[in-house]
Design a binder for these strands. Structure first.
Length: 589
DNA sequence: CCCGCAACTTAGAACAGTTCAG
DNA sequence: CTGAACTGTTCTAAGTTGCGGG
């Protein structure tokens, strides 16, 4: 495979210096560049920006503010303002912008923020500002609120202008050429500085995520393409030509020291092919999954502890669609686990529970600190093994002390080429959708009812994969509204029926049509209500996007005459273009 | 083996845009 | 026409996997 990128494309990093009508704020590369210039002391063409007040120039944040005047109160002399240096001011604004967020009340967040904020202060500021609790960010916060209100209140024309400008930026920076095809870039904007927002109980929440400078950036493009130039007076960290990888740009982030990438959009060929491969691997697993199941059931009896542990873990991964569960460095991230990293404290064994034998109660935090809670009846042999694994251990000890993801994946590789732990999640998700659709779709149903069936099948998968969401804040109210609508519609239908009865013969047909139409509307509303109620705490998006072979859904649409747009929106259709081309109505996963 | 690094997929929150009832 | 509700998009954190070097 060759990689060929055109100049214009990567030019997303080749920021230009001109006064930018900054509605896109700091995420806009142009603004970032303005800031870079300032930071690097390159000086910018004052013909374009000289009329801006100093603080508006400092920090891409303010590049369109006309009245900056940011100050932090400090409580030692109540009511007094303090003018901050530009760097300290910018970090303060990050905090101010989050003031309404729960984060800013958390001790860890405040501690980390304060520590990093101090690093940006002058020595004078350091001596004056000694306690975060005495700093009042509300004036700053009000300023940003007012800004956002002003944005909302803009005229239609102004909003249109912004839209056009965004479109222009997308056209200019959002594409590249790979293998002679113009492809959309996914995240073409450099991540702006801000305060780190970890999920769950993250020990690093509130730390300052620093601004990315040209010196941090590695550009990856083909040798013969003109690579984008760094801003004047600066250098890229590196320009390389590695066609074994798919990323266009990378940099190292300062919170965890991990690498961030700019890559192509899911609609791109390179991502689409990979996606297809993923589902093909899962379909190969389908062919040998019974053999593998027989194998691990057999291994529950193994003489060797490590093999028993491996077999029980694999059983969980298969049956419960758990993630592999890599080890994590303690204190660096939130305390979450997957299958191999389960600890004794995450399981409770019940010899008998609710009339069922050998029940395992799982309670742990998984990816993104989403709670996994499940009570599962298991086979006697699994239960006995778990008792064995938990013997003489402390709650914080590893359940599978002879196992990790590397061992497990090596074993899986021997069972099937390309098999890893995550393939089970894909396989079980897709096969569940297929089975559910086959089972519950009624060809006599109308379109909305069929879509309800589809959503129910999708929901079964989301439940399996534990894709949860907090019930929307407005849930109860919106259900009530819907019920009101349904009642009104029922009323309307009753009226229509009465009219039908009393109507003269010549009007009967017309009246009949009318009540049929109302009936249909009522039905649609009722279906909607059911769907929404069942979906209260479940997020369908993740499984739809990442776990369900799109060919299943497309074939289903074709078979039952459902327009694909009812299942996949525009973006999703772009992502699954490969499958839309491929799937016939008789496709089965 | 273990560890750290690199590259890629998967994830929910936040935000923006659209729709629809009043 | 307006604002609330809903839907779609963007953002970037948090996982998995594989590799190479000691």
């Amino acid at each position: 495979m060759s990689l060929l990128w055109m100049y214009e494309v990567l030019d997303c990093l080749n920021f230009k210096c001109f006064k930018h009508p900054c509605s896109v704020e700091h995420t806009c590369p142009v603004c970032v560049f303005n800031r870079l210039l300032e930071l690097n002391n390159v000086g910018f063409s004052n013909q374009t920006q000289s009329s801006w007040p100093l603080s508006s120039v400092i920090g891409s944040l303010f590049c369109c503010c006309s009245e900056p005047a940011f100050m932090v109160f400090y409580g030692l002399s109540p009511g007094k303002h303090m003018k901050l240096s530009s760097t300290a001011e910018e970090v303060a604004t990050f905090f101010a912008k989050m003031l309404d967020h729960e984060y800013t009340t958390k001790e860890v967040f405040r501690k980390n923020f304060y520590k990093d904020w101090r690093k940006e202060m002058t020595s004078e500021e350091k001596s004056k500002i000694t306690d975060l609790n005495k700093c009042d960010f509300s004036e700053m916060s009000e300023y940003f609120k007012a800004q956002s209100e002003a944005r909302k209140a803009m005229t239609k024309e102004d909003k249109q202008k912004i839209k056009e400008e965004n479109e222009r930026i997308l056209q200019e920076y959002g594409f590249c050429i790979m293998d002679n095809h113009k492809e959309r870039i996914a995240n073409f904007r450099i991540e702006p500085p801000g305060l780190f927002r970890g999920r769950g109980d993250h020990p690093k929440m509130g730390m300052l995520k620093r601004r990315i400078r040209p010196e941090d950036i590695i550009v990856n493009c083909s040798k013969d393409s003109k690579h984008p130039k760094p801003p004047p007076g600066t250098k890229w960290k590196e320009v390389r030509h590695d066609n074994k990888v798919t990323w266009l740009v990378s940099w190292t982030e300062n919170i965890q020291g991990s690498i961030k990438y700019i890559m192509l959009n899911p609609s791109s060929r390179i991502k689409g092919e990979k996606d297809w491969q993923k589902y093909e691997t899962a379909r190969r697993l389908k062919k040998c999954v019974e053999r593998i199941r027989a194998q691990y059931r057999d291994d529950w009896k193994s003489k060797e502890m490590r093999i028993r542990q491996r077999a029980v873990a694999l059983y969980f991964i298969d049956k419960l669609a758990l993630r592999a569960g890599n080890e994590k460095e303690e204190g660096e991230t939130a305390d979450t686990v997957g299958c191999c990293s389960l600890r004794v404290e995450h399981l409770t064994l019940h010899q008998e529970m609710d009339g069922q034998e050998y029940v395992v109660e799982f309670d742990f935090l998984g990816k993104d600190s989403i709670r996994y809670y499940n009570k599962v009846p298991v086979e006697k042999r699994v239960f006995k093994n778990l008792q064995l694994f938990m013997e003489d251990k402390e709650p914080e000890d590893d359940l599978f002390d002879r196992l990790n993801t590397s061992i497990l994946n090596k074993h899986l590789q021997e069972l099937m080429d390309g098999l890893t732990a995550k393939v089970f999640r894909t396989y079980n998700a897709s096969i569940t959708l297929q089975q559910q659709l086959n089972e519950i779709t009624n060809s006599e149903d109308n379109v909305p009812a069929k879509i309800l069936s589809y959503n129910r099948a999708n929901r079964a998968v989301a439940i399996l994969c534990n894709h949860q969401r907090a019930p929307p804040k407005t849930f109860e109210k919106s259900m009530q509204n819907l019920q009101t609508k349904i009642d009104a519609k029922k009323e309307q239908l009753a009226d229509a029926k009465r009219e039908l009865k009393s109507a003269k013969a010549d009007a009967k047909v017309r009246r009949d049509e009318k009540s049929k139409k109302i009936e249909e509307q009522l039905m649609k509303l009722e279906v909607q209500a059911t769907d929404r109620e069942e979906n209260k705490q479940i997020a369908l998006g993740t499984s739809k996007l990442n776990y369900l072979d799109p060919r299943i859904s497309i074939a289903w649409c074709k078979k039952f005459g459902i327009p694909i747009e009812k299942i996949y929106n525009k973006t999703q259709r772009e992502k699954f273009a490969w499958a839309i081309d491929m799937a016939e109505k008789d496709f089965q996963f």
